[in-house]
Every structure is written in C-alpha cells, then in structure tokens.
Design a protein around this nucleic acid. Structure first.
Length: 922
RNA sequence: GGGUGCUUAGCUCAGCCGGGAGAGCGUCGCCCUUACAAGGCGAAAGUCGGGGGUUCGAACCCCUCAGCACCCACCA
C-alpha cells in the first residue's frame, strides 16, 4: 500500500467494478428493503443538498444490503417541467429565438436533445458519490411507463370527480405565462407605498378615500366596500361612485371582510385581480373586470390611453393622472408582502383563467390518518406537526401548467367546448361513444411536475401493472428528504399512494436539515458561497473557483465582492478531500437540527481520519502479511490488549447498529471515529508493538495479536463500509484473506452484529488500570518537559495484590508505552525519594527527581491537581452532608457519591503528603 | 396573525431516562518515537442566553424575558 492515502486512485476503480458486477441489484433474498431516491432534475447538477441526502440513503442502503436485506435503492430522474423548460428557453433566447418560433413539437424535441446531452451529468455525479443505486432499474418521469401511470391516475381521479376544471383566480406568473400552485409562490416583505385615493360620489355629494398598494388596479374596480357596522359610512352604502380615470359607476357595498380599523375603512374591490376581492365579488355578484393580458400589460378593458401599458408603467401613469386630477390624497410608505414566483422571481398576478384542479380534501383525510395512526412515522417526530398543520388547512391543488415540457393533460375538447377525459383519443371515442367524424383537440396544458412525482414510489415499480417489484418493494421502507418539500412532495406521495395502492408509500420519513455554509447562511449563487461537492472531492484551484463563482451572476456587480471573499476564504483554493471524507463529514453533520452548517475544517479532519485508517491498515498488513495470523484457534494466546480491543469492538458494533437504525448518522460517525482513532490506533496498535517486536514474546502471543489485529480491522471495515465504501473496500481486499474471509466484495459481507460473548468487562477494567498508569506518567512527562524519548526509571509503592498481578502480566506493555527504563517496588514502609508522583487508585508511581525533574515545577503541577481535587471533593461532601440528598436520592447514587468522596479524600491526602515532601526539599 | 425550531469552549456542533460539562477545528508546550507530521504526547479554555420555579439534585422538566432562524396565512 502507498504511504499516503490517495482517494482518487481507489475511488475511480471500485465504483465501476461494483456496478459492472451487478452488486447494486436486489439480492432476491431476505426481507425487502427499499428506498426511492428523490429524483433529481434530469438536466441538473449535483449540489450539496443532493450529496448530503444521497450519502445518508447510500449508507442506509449499504447497511441493509450487508445486513441481509433484499435491498433496492431505486434510481431515477425527474423531468422538472418549468425548471428544464426555462433552461432550454434561455438557450434559445441566446440564439435570438423563442419557443414560439420553434413551435411546440420542435421545442419539445429540443428539450429531449438537451436531456440527452446533459442528462448524464447528475447520474455520473451520483456515481462519484459512491451511491449504490440500482441503475438497471433507472426511471425517468417522462418514461413511457411512468407517463402511463400519470394518465391512469388523472383519468381515474377525473371520473371519480376528484379532478375538475374550473375558472377562477390563480397565481399567474406573467413571465412564464403559466399558472403555478400556491406552494410555488413565495411571499416576501418588501418596501412599497400605500396610496390614498379619493373616490367621488356620483351625485357630487362628497367622496370616500380608499387606501391601496396597487393603484393601477383601480381600472378594474367593481365596487368600494365598507364594514356593515361602520357608522361612518352606513348612510353611503348603496350609493354610486364615479370611478376616477374611467367613465364607470361602481356601487358602495357593505361586507364584513373590511376591517374598519385598518386604513380608511374603505376598500376598493377588484374581483379579477385580488383573492380577497374575488370572494367579495362573488358574494355581491360584482362583475369581474380582467384588465391584464397574459404578460401583465393592460388590455382592452381599460380606457384607451392606458391600453398596452406594462403593469408598473401603468401604476406610474395612473398615480400621475390621479394626482393631476386632484384625486390623490397622500402617499404613505408601507411594507407589504409581495408574492413572487419561485422560479422567475416575477411578481405573481392573481389572474382569471381556466385551470385543472385536484379536489384535495377527500385525499388528505386518509393521509392525515395514516400519520396519526403511526402507519407512517416521521423522524424526528416533530415534523409530523408541520405535516398536520398543512394537511388540515389544505387547498385544492392547481395542476395545469401552460408550458410544453411535461405530461400533457389527457383531456380532449370538441368544437363545442365539451370536455372528454380518457387514456387517449381512441379510448375517449369509445367511452363517450363519439362519432368518428367528430374532431377532437387535446388540451394544450401539461401537468405540474409534482403530479408525476407524487406517484414516484409506485410508478417506478411498474404500477398500474401488478409487477413482482411492486409486490416486493411497496410499501417502501423509508423516505429520506428535506423538510422543504414535505408539502410539495411527501404529503402528495402519501395521498396518492393511499388512494391508488391502498397502502402507505413508505413506513418512515426521515427528515434531514438543509446544508448551509460554515456560518449558517443559505448557499446561493448570488451570495457566492456555493460549494460544489465535486470540487470537495477533486479539489479546485483558486482561479477556477473564483471564475466559477463569478460567472453567470444575476447581479454582475456582486462579482467583485464575491471574488474578494472567495480569495480570502480559500487562499489556496480547495484541496482534494475524496468522496469518503465528504461522506463521513455529511454523516457527522447530520444532527437532528434543521440547519447543517458545512464547515471546511470538518472535512479536513475526516480526510485525516481516512488517512489514519489507511495507515493503520498499512501497519497491520506490514505485520501480518505472509505470517501466521492465528486462524488455528489452539495456537494463539490473547493478551489483555487483544481481549480489550475485541470487547471494545463489540461495544462499537452495538453503537453503530443502534445509530444507523435510529437514523443518528452523527452518532454513527463518531462511534467509528472514536473507536478507530482513540482505541484501535492510539492504544491497541501501540500495545501490539511490544508483542510483535519484543525480544522474548511467545509465538502464541504473537499469533494472538496478529489474529486480533486482523480480525478487528476486518470487522471495523465492515462496520465502516456503509459510510466510507471506497477506502473500506480497498483495504478489505487485502485484509480479508488474512482474516480467513472469502474473496469477493465487502459490499456483500455480513454486517457485524453484537456478540455479547465477545464482551470482556474484566479486560476493560484491567485496561483502564493500564491506561491510568500510562496516562499518569505521560502527564508528568508532558508537564515537566521530559523528552518522550528518555526512558524513565520509576518506583512503585502501596499497591495491592491486584496491582501487583496486573503489573506482572502487563510489564512489557508498560515498559514500552510509558518508555520506562525500570520498574522497582518500594517496600510498604520505605521512605520514597523526592519524586514526581502519580496515583493509580491506591498505587503510587514515583519518578525520582534525580536531576531530571525540577522540584518547583512538580510542586506547581501538584498544586494544580490538589486544587482540582479539593474542589471536586468539596462538592461531593456538600451533597453527602445534605440529609435531603442522602434521604431522597436513590441509594445507588448516594453510594456512588460516597465512593467518590472516599477515593478523592485518599488521593488528596496522598498528594498533599507528596507536596509537603517537595516543600521540605525547597 | 398562527405555528415550529435554536441559544453549551474562540469557531462548528454533540450531550440519550434529571445524578461527576464533551468532540472536531483553532490555541499553547514538547517531539520527525520505523503505520500515519494529513502524525504523536501533554495542556489551557465554558455563569450551558437572562430571570424565576419544580426537585435531594437541572444544560436537560415547567414558566417567563431576550435574541436569532424558519414555515404557514387573504388585511386593502
């Protein structure tokens, strides 16, 4: 093995082998375990959120595969209607064309071409992450099969009356020229104004003042409303207003929607361009006056001088004209919530159109129950509150989109506008018994992308066909996703799954946090703080990183600032960390909170961890390859260290199994980290050295240690594989033969389960003694600035029989790890020479000063220790003298405190005596 | 307006059922000890956001205040 861990050398090779060998396919044996990947946009690129999420899913998948499950991680991508169409349209615009120049068919061809060109990017990046997805079953939401599922669902819902078409106000994106759902609108507080406008009475007897944030909609007003109980205006209700800038008369009406305390208490009512006003209009049978075109310019419904004006230009014009005519009373700065499209950032316009809706309440009800009854479990559980909150207030879902890329709605119209819904034209003619010569034209709209996503858990398994895969893997085991799409996706999958399969789509939903930058800021192109997971794997030089972050900005003026910040944060660019280190980092960061702050310092640490593991393996191989690794049981003897590390391994295996089944990936990572570094490397490997290289070690003992070195490493690699698949596989290939394991792949080895027989509490206790012994001496060495290379003679006193036994057995370990020149017992009553002192329980360790140690420094060190002990003791005795504590606390807690007090008291006494001796010296 | 989180070492975060405050990075000191300097050994560092309560005992449970973040919602 190379001296330094080089992730690239090993990562490039293994994935190919695994995939070629078909290891990602379900084994066909064992309990089914299935995860559906949240399908990424087919033309997208992998971002940190994907990388994070896919790491967790891969760890689960690999774990269950090793644990013997019939495991499927379903691969696939999403057509991402609006997002993908926008990308291609932007390309077209760059060529000076629009999609309308191409026409629908040619445009869709063009999108397919783009998909063919870029569709491999993200799947390739998933492979680089080590994701063990079953690519042989890869699906795409616009596949034939999935499209058939979409049509089937639409038709069935329609004929059950759960899909309907209706004309009402929708959220209209005037840039995209399409309706969007409530969820695709994000409202943000922005600075604006409140215009106070005088509305004169038609009879000339005065005026009302209305306050509005949208003066241009005056042109579409149908009424002015006041509160029915508002005495100020009661006598005006029923009168007519002469609407300024128009020649229309509108009524003054009374409606309880109006809040008399807000503004002037008079509200202009524009039913066609405001969701509230729409309701008012319905109650009062007011005319709907639509004043906008699809791209939010004023249409023919307004006086000719305003026609054709864009809505914000229209606002300026209307305000200017009102002011000129004296109708404008005042303008007040006002903060308001502005709705914007999540894709385009365009201000969303409430707009009157025909759209398709899913009647959602009947679907939501069973979906709520499924979670209430625990048939679906959210992890962490509190996300179920969020789910309930939304589901109990859910609104009908607008599913039609006026774009071209997507599943076209399976509805046809005849020339009279009669609508027919069915699988296709032929089916419709049959179902509705339509004459052959009746000409039909299909609805132009496509479905919301999330409509097909909602079917993903069963459509990918072959539904509506009753396939073996569906029977085996549905309901799936767990859905792993971020809280940001609980409404968009999770809730809708639950509703559709229950509706069409009668079963929940997944039994558990693991909700993880969202990846942010090191300081908790959202990663975004415009902030220039985006990290690309592939750059973390491969590394990237500073200039390339700067270029990447500053090109294609929406606000080019930010480039300079971003460049500066980037140069400051990454003066050397980003080093290459490798996939395993990245995965380990994601797991370590996957705590239960909702934000995951990605700190580059952490990934460096975990790259070092991989290097540590690599070098530990090198050490093991150097000492075992070509040698007897003790596979014949009668020929090996286990040392304390051997028994200890095997016991610790069992505890680690237990912690790892618990962590992974409890979705605590952070605990998984730390269990692996601590065992590998702090126990296996720091202690066990060091303890193996005197056995393997010692002058008079018995061959049986050496075999025992080689055996343990290899067995524990092999087991550790199996434990670690779900998280760090590449390095574990690479090392395992070399270690497995030494451990007597069959050749093959680590991927298919059994995952370690806890063997309680392997626990050895005595070995752990004795090892604790050994460690205390060594740490006591190391502390003196460190504090006294004694060279670690200098062998020290030490004296022992006051030990009991156990101490003596332990010393005899472990003398070689102590000599080696504490770098001792000699160990000498002092008689119980002998006078110890001036020395630095450490205690191991009742046992005293002395390092004679003898010119090595400065008495004053040792005095200071002892003072510090005595001080600490004294404070601890004080607290403990405080408790014990409190009769309430002794009386009410559980006896075992009291006993423990007593024991501690005794121990500390004794230690304090001894150290104080030592301290006194030093004082005499000085 | 309704809802949900968060606040622990300089930084990023763990802390499980209420019982001796932890990790990584950073900092300081000593070491290139034949697996690893991407390393070893040792050390320093916290009023657990503030206040109150429950309890023998609170980082943890309850109340309250402050600060931060997020989600939902039709106040013109």
């Amino acid at each position: 093995m190379d001296k330094t861990y080089d992730p690239h050398a090993i990562e490039s090779r293994w994935y190919q082998i695994w995939e070629d060998q078909g290891y990602f396919r379900p084994s066909g044996q064992g309990a089914p375990y299935c995860i559906m990947i949240p399908p990424p946009n087919v033309t997208g690129r992998l971002h940190m959120g994907h990388a994070f999420q896919d790491t967790l899913m891969d760890a689960l998948t690999r774990y269950h595969r090793m644990a013997g499950g019939n495991t499927l991680w379903q691969a696939g991508t999403d057509h991402a209607g609006i997002a993908t169409q926008m990308v291609v349209e932007r390309q077209l615009n760059g060529e000076g064309q629009t999609r309308h120049d191409l026409g629908r068919e040619a445009f869709i061809d063009r999108v397919w071409t783009w998909k063919a060109h870029s569709g491999g990017t993200i799947t390739g990046q998933l492979r680089r992450m080590g994701a063990s997805l079953d690519w042989s079953r890869e699906r795409f939401t616009l596949d034939e099969g999935l499209s058939a599922a979409v049509t089937e669902v639409f038709v069935r819902l329609y004929h059950e009356g759960l899909i309907y078409r209706g004309q009402r106000l929708v959220n209209w994106d005037p840039v995209l020229h399409t309706a969007v759902s409530d969820l695709e609108v994000v409202s943000q507080e922005e600075d604006g104004f409140m215009w106070h406008i005088r509305y004169p009475l038609a009879d000339g007897s005065g005026h009302l003042t209305v306050a509005t944030t949208r003066p241009e909609t005056l042109l579409g007003d149908s009424a002015v409303a006041v509160h029915p109980g508002d005495e100020r205006y009661a006598h005006w209700v029923g009168k007519q207003i002469a609407l300024p800038l128009t020649d229309r008369l509108i009524p003054i009406i009374a409606d309880s929607y109006v809040d008399p305390a807000f503004g002037t208490g008079c509200v202009k009512i524009t039913p066609a361009h405001d969701f509230n006003d729409y309701g008012v209009g319905e109650r009062h049978q007011l005319p709907l006056i639509n004043i906008f075109t699809v791209d939010a310019h004023l249409n023919g419904q307004v006086p000719s001088r305003y026609q054709g004006l864009e809505r914000f230009a229209a606002r300026r014009q209307v305000v200017a004209d009102l002011e000129a005519a004296g109708w404008l009373e005042k303008i007040v700065p006002h903060k308001l919530m502005v709705p914007r499209g999540d894709r385009t950032q365009a201000v969303i316009e409430p707009f009157l159109t025909d759209q398709w809706y899913v009647k959602i309440a009947p679907l939501a009800e069973p979906a709520i129950r499924a979670v209430e009854e625990g048939r679906i479990r959210f992890i962490p559980d509190n996300w179920s509150k969020t789910y309930f909150e939304w589901m109990r207030n859910i609104q009908d879902w607008c599913i039609s989109r006026q774009i071209w890329w997507g599943h076209r709605i399976p509805a046809w119209y005849d020339s009279a506008g009669q609508v027919y819904v069915g699988q296709n034209e032929v089916a419709i003619r049959q179902r509705y018994r339509l004459p052959d010569d009746l000409s039909l034209r299909q609805d132009e709209d496509v479905l919301d992308t999330w409509f097909s996503s909602a079917l993903w858990p069963f459509s990918t398994l072959g539904w509506p066909e009753q396939t073996p895969a569906l029977a085996t893997f549905y309901p799936t085991s767990v859905l792993v996703t971020g809280f940001d799409i609980i409404f968009f996706w999770v809730a809708r999958m639950i509703m559709m799954g229950l509706k069409f399969t009668g079963e929940v789509p997944f039994r558990e939903v693991y909700i993880h946090g969202l990846v942010r930058d090191a300081h908790g800021n959202k990663m975004s192109k415009s902030k220039g703080n985006v990290l690309d997971p592939i750059d973390l794997i491969d590394g990237i030089d500073l200039e390339s990183l700067v270029a990447k972050r500053t090109t294609g900005l929406m606000q080019p003026e930010m480039a300079k600032k971003i460049e500066q910040a980037t140069r400051q944060e990454f003066p050397e660019g980003i080093p290459s960390f490798g996939t395993d280190a990245l995965r380990f980092t994601f797991a370590a960061l996957a705590t239960t909170g909702r934000d995951i702050n990605f700190d580059l310092g952490r990934i460096g640490g975990y790259r070092n961890f991989c290097n540590k593991l690599w070098n530990a393996a090198r050490y093991v191989l150097m000492n075992t390859e070509g040698q007897d690794t003790g596979l014949g049981e009668d020929l090996r003897v286990l040392s304390l260290a051997d028994r200890w590390i095997q016991s610790r391994f069992q505890r680690t295996a237990n912690a790892v199994n618990e962590a992974i089944t409890g979705y605590r990936f952070d605990l998984l990572a730390s269990a692996l980290y601590e065992f590998t570094w702090n126990e296996y490397c720091d202690w066990y490997l060091e303890l193996s050295k005197p056995v393997l290289t010692g002058d008079n070690a018995a061959p049986e003992a050496q075999r025992g240690t080689r055996y343990t070195l290899v067995q524990v490493l092999e087991g550790l690699l199996r434990l670690a594989h779900p998280l760090i698949p590449f390095i574990s596989e690479e090392i395992w290939q070399r270690v497995a033969p030494l451990a007597g394991k069959p050749v093959g792949t680590l991927m298919n080895q059994p995952f370690p389960v806890v063997d309680s027989q392997g626990l050895d509490p005595e070995a752990e206790a004795e090892m604790q003694w050994l460690m205390a012994f060594i740490l006591g001496l190391r502390n003196i060495r460190g504090e006294m600035n004694l060279s670690p290379a200098k062998p020290l003679p030490i004296l022992l006193q006051h030990g009991d029989e156990t101490d003596r036994q332990r010393l005899d057995v472990n003398r070689a370990f102590l000599m080696s790890l504490a770098r001792l020149a000699s160990i000498t017992w002092l008689a119980e009553d002998a006078k110890a020479p001036p020395a630095a002192t450490a205690l191991v329980g009742g046992l005293h360790l002395y390092i004679p000063l003898a010119g090595l140690i400065d008495a004053e420094a040792e005095a200071k060190r002892l003072d510090k220790e005595i001080d600490k002990l004294r404070k601890d003791l004080q607290r403990t005795t405080g408790k014990l003298t409190n009769s309430a504590f002794v009386g009410k606390a559980p006896p075992e807690v009291v006993a423990k405190e007593r024991e501690r007090a005794t121990e500390m008291g004794q230690a304090l006494e001894k150290l104080a005596a030592q301290r006194a001796k030093l004082a005499e010296l000085g």
